[in-house]
Amino acid sequence: MSTTALILLIFFGLVAIWFGWRVFMTSSMVRSALSLLASMAAIGAMFLAMEAEFLGILQIMMMATEMSIMAIFMTMFMMDPGGMGGMDMSHQKIPSIGGGMIVGALVVCIAAFTAWGNMALEVPLPDKQNYDLGMELMKRSMMIFESAGTTILVAMIAAVSTALPYKSDIDGN
C-alpha cells in the first residue's frame, strides 16, 4: 500500500470517527442525520483508498438516499427537531458510555494483539474486480444473493403492512 493511500485511509478514518461522534452530540436532527451521512461517505472513501472501487462508490451512493430519508423521519418524529429547545435526548448515560468504551477497547485489543500474518500487497484491477464480483454473485454465491433479494421483498411488504393505519383509524374512530 502506498504512503498516499495510507495517509488518505487514516484521514478518512478520522473524518468518519469525528462525524460519527457528532451524530449523537448535536441537538439539531437534520445535522445529526447528515453527520451520519458524512461518516458513512467517509467510510466509502476509505473503501476507495483500499482499492475496492465498486463497493466504495456503491456505499457513497446508497447512503446519500438512506440518510436523507433518516433526516425526514427525524424531523417527523422528534419533539424538538430543530434543536432550539435544548432538550436532552439521552438516558442511562454512565452505563451507555461505559458500555461503548469497554466494547470498543475490547475490539481494539483484539485487533492489536492478534498475529494477522502477512499482508497482501497487490489487489486485482477494478475491471477485474467487477468481473470477479459478478461471477461470484451469479455462480458460487447465487443462492445467498437470491435470498438477499427475497429478504428485501419480504421486508418491503412487512414495512408497508406495519405502517398502514388500522381500519378503525381510517373510519375516524
Binding site: 447528515l34 472501487e53 465498486f54 462508490i57 456503491l58 451512493m61 446519500a64 436523507s68 477494478p126 467487477n130
Partner: peptide, 25 residues
C-alpha cells in the same frame, strides 16, 4: 477513467439531493 463510471454518475448526482435538502433546511 473509472471502471465504475456509470455508477459514479449516480453516486455524485445523489448528492444534488443532499445539497438541495440542506439548502431547504
Amino acid at each position: 477513467d473509472l471502471a465504475t463510471g456509470a455508477l459514479f454518475i449516480n453516486a455524485s448526482l445523489a448528492y444534488v439531493m443532499v445539497a438541495v435538502l440542506m439548502a431547504g433546511w
